[in-house]
Design a binder for these strands. Structure first.
Lengths: 202, 202
DNA sequence: GTCTATAGAGGGATAGAC
DNA sequence: GTCTATCCCTCTATAGAC
């Protein structure tokens, strides 16, 4: 029980990376097994079918996101910092050559197991709710500006980043940065150092 | 030369639909062949490798888009109508259960043949250039409003719609409509009937 | 231009030994 | 919990007859 404790977790780690890098159809038990230095049967032991693995994967994304938002909440961060933290989350995906799991499921939808789709649906609701609440708070406090409703903007923000990560693979990493730049501009979220750096010399 | 004229075109038609519905890894020569009522060898005759087929596919997307923009230009449509026409193009994808080819290539990037990726890069530039010019013209004429630069907004518009089509598969078709709604709001593109319907009764 | 037949690789999954 | 061995399927691609 201690010898190889953690194989189950290591499988999820490897699978998660492969999913976001190559897509659902783009990874196999072979890939995972060879990456962990085990045989495919060992992977099947922990996750009998690929559907089981897929569901566990999305479930963990959900748990991780819940944990992440709770961290932010317990630190009492303001709406602006929360939005920036979300941007950083996605920017990290970019650096790691990953895309959003939501996009993977969206594109390969027909080839995704039913149970995994349903789990993704919940994940999507979770993301959208949090983003909506954050924008709503930001607007109420007057620190974030945007047109339309908080939920509408939250949705277009989410899809924009998701598409941005994908398009960055085609158009280069700066492409994603430009999406971020645009979103910050719309939110009135620009690092005011420009203002602060020139404290009226005259 | 006349018996089965058009097989080559019909292959592209079937492949295009499959690509946008199931992804690149999600369709096979089998799918195409059975859909056309022929054998896989016949498909290989027209497109020896799947990479050849993939490249031809993106090339046709490019040609179609060029034709489409030229049509709009020759009709002298204004920037607002052009943006709306683009929205309609994407909305049609939604109705057909398709996503943007750009997203497919983005998600499955690692599994996409080199030549097909390069072709997609050009396609992306094409889309972005046209959208940027359209927004630029709209802003100059004062009929479209947005924050930031035309190219920045064009990019975030494109990624937003792309992500919106994908997310609609997870969250339902209304999801995409809400993205459109949000974009229209930001552009100040709302059907003013609301204003016109109440012509100051008092 | 389309067919039959087949090669050869990789995929998901299971049985049973250790 | 991990292994070997194996089954059966689908996939891309080619050769050669028609």
């Amino acid at each position: 029980m201690r010898t190889r404790q953690g194989t189950k977790k290591r499988i999820l780690d490897a699978a998660s990376e492969l999913l976001q890098r190559n897509g659902y159809g783009g990874f196999s038990y072979q890939h995972i097994a060879s990456q962990l230095g085990v045989k495919t049967a060992a992977v099947h032991y922990h996750y009998p079918s690929k559907a089981d693995l897929g569901v566990a994967l999305i479930r963990r994304y959900r748990a991780n996101f819940s944990w992440w938002t709770e961290q932010l909440a317990s630190q009492g961060t303001d709406p602006v910092a929360r939005v920036e933290a979300f941007f950083e989350l996605e920017a990290r995906y970019l650096r790691e050559g990953k895309v959003c799991p939501l996009g993977v499921v969206g594109v390969e939808h027909a080839g995704i197991p039913e149970a995994m789709r349903r789990e993704t649906e919940v994940f999507f609701g979770q993301l959208l709710d949090w983003l909506t609440r954050t924008l709503h708070d930001g607007a109420r406090q007057g620190v974030i500006t945007f047109s339309g409703t908080a939920s509408g903007k939250a949705l277009s923000l989410l899809t924009s980043l998701q598409g941005g990560l994908q398009v960055a693979r085609v158009g280069g990493g700066e492409t994603f940065q430009r999406v971020l730049e645009q979103l910050r501009t719309e939110f009135g979220l620009h690092p005011q150092p420009v203002v602060r750096r020139m404290p009226a010399v005259g």
